[in-house]
C-alpha cells in the first residue's frame, strides 16, 4: 500500500501544478512583456540619449541633472500638476462623500439615481473630453448659453489660461466622482445600523451622524480614494491632450507632467529624457503614497488608542 501511495501520489499533483502554471503562463507572459520589460527598459533608457533612429548613447545622470537644474518647463509642469492634483482630489473626495451619503439613503427609485450618477464611469476619457469641448465652447457652448440665461457674460473656458486649468479640473472631478462614490458607498453600507440607531436615540441629526459616525468609520476607504485620485491626477494625459491640445495650452496653463513626457518622447524624440521624467514622476508618487499611508496609519492608531 505504502509503495503504491508514494509512486502514484506525486504524479497527479505534479500534473495539476503543471496545468496551473500553464494557465497562469499567458497572464505572466503579458505581465513580463508589457509591464516588467518596459519598466526595466525605461529605467535603462533614463540614463541614455535615444531618438529611436540611432543607437542609444550613455549619458549617466545627465538627463536627471538637466531636468532638475536647467529645464524651466519642469517647474511649470510640477506646479501645474500640483494645482491640478489639488483641484481634482479635494473636490472629488468632498463631492463623492456627499454623493455616496445621498445614495446610501433608502428612498424609492434610488437604483435609477445610482445608475445615472455612475454613468460617467462607463465613458472613455477621450469621448468625454470631446463632449466637454462642446460644452466649454465660448460662443456656442452649452455652459455659456446656460450662464447667459442668468445674465453671466460668456466665459472663455478653454481660451484664457486661468479658466483652462479650472475647466480641466471640472471635467476631471466629474469623471472621478463616480468611481470614488462607488468605493465610499460600499464602505458606508458596511457601517453597522446599530451605531446609527444609538446615535438617533442620543438625539443626533442626519448631518451630525454623517460627520461623526459615517466619515470616521469609512476612513480606510477615504484614504484609498485619496491615494488613487492622486495617482490618477499625476497620470493625467489623455483628457488634457484632447481638451487643451498637445502642448497643454493655452500657453503653459495645462502643461502637466504627462503632457511634458509625451511631448519630449514623441515630438522631440528624446526618449531618454522622457524616461528620466517618468521615473522622477514615479519617485514623487511613491513618496506621496508612503507619506499618506504613514499618516493615515498613525491617525488610525491614535484613534484606536484614544479615549474609548
Amino acid at each position: 500500500m505504502t509503495s503504491l501511495d508514494t509512486s502514484a501520489g506525486p504524479r497527479p499533483w505534479r500534473r495539476r501544478a503543471w496545468a496551473g502554471r500553464l494557465f497562469v503562463a499567458p497572464n505572466l507572459a503579458a505581465v513580463t512583456v508589457f509591464l516588467l520589460f518596459p519598466l526595466g527598459f525605461s529605467l535603462y533608457m533614463s540614463f541614455q540619449q535615444w531618438d529611436v533612429f540611432n543607437p542609444p548613447k550613455f549619458l549617466g545622470l545627465r538627463n536627471f541633472r538637466e531636468l532638475f537644474t536647467s529645464d524651466p518647463l519642469f517647474l511649470i509642469a510640477i506646479r501645474n500638476t500640483a494645482v491640478f492634483t489639488l483641484g481634482t482630489v479635494v473636490p472629488t473626495v468632498l463631492i463623492s462623500l456627499v454623493v455616496a451619503g445621498v445614495l446610501n439613503q433608502k428612498i424609492k427609485g434610488i437604483g435609477i439615481v445610482r445608475t445615472i450618477v455612475f454613468l460617467p464611469l462607463a465613458i472613455s476619457s477621450v469621448v468625454m473630453a470631446v463632449v466637454w469641448q462642446f460644452v466649454f465652447n465660448t460662443d456656442n457652448g452649452l455652459l455659456n448659453i446656460m450662464l447667459g440665461w442668468i445674465g453671466v457674460g460668456p466665459i472663455p473656458w478653454l481660451v484664457e489660461p486661468r479658466w483652462a486649468m479650472f475647466s480641466l479640473c471640472v471635467v476631471s472631478v466629474w469623471r472621478a466622482v463616480p468611481f470614488a462614490a462607488v468605493i465610499l458607498l460600499a464602505a458606508m453600507q458596511g457601517v453597522p445600523e446599530t451605531v446609527y440607531e444609538a446615535a438617533k436615540i442620543d438625539g443626533a441629526g442626519g448631518i451630525r451622524q454623517f460627520v461623526s459616525i459615517t466619515v470616521p468609520l469609512i476612513r480606510g476607504a477615504v484614504t484609498f480614494v485619496v491615494v488613487i485620485s492622486i495617482i490618477h491626477a499625476f497620470q493625467a494625459f489623455d483628457m488634457v491632450y484632447v481638451l487643451n491640445g498637445s502642448n497643454g495650452g493655452p500657453e503653459t496653463a495645462t502643461y502637466v507632467l504627462g503632457i511634458m513626457l509625451f511631448q519630449h518622447a514623441f515630438s522631440f524624440l528624446e526618449f531618454g529624457y522622457a524616461s528620466a521624467l517618468a521615473w522622477v514622476m514615479f519617485g514623487i508618487l511613491l513618496v506621496l503614497t508612503v507619506l499618506q499611508l504613514r499618516l493615515s496609519r498613525q491617525r488610525s492608531m491614535e484613534a484606536a488608542s484614544g479615549p474609548g
Partner: peptide, 13 residues
C-alpha cells in the same frame, strides 16, 4: 481691434 476677422474664441466654434 478692428474685429474684421474672427478672434480666438470665435474660431473655436
Amino acid at each position: 481691434k478692428h474685429k474684421a476677422a474672427p478672434n480666438a474664441s470665435e474660431t473655436q466654434s
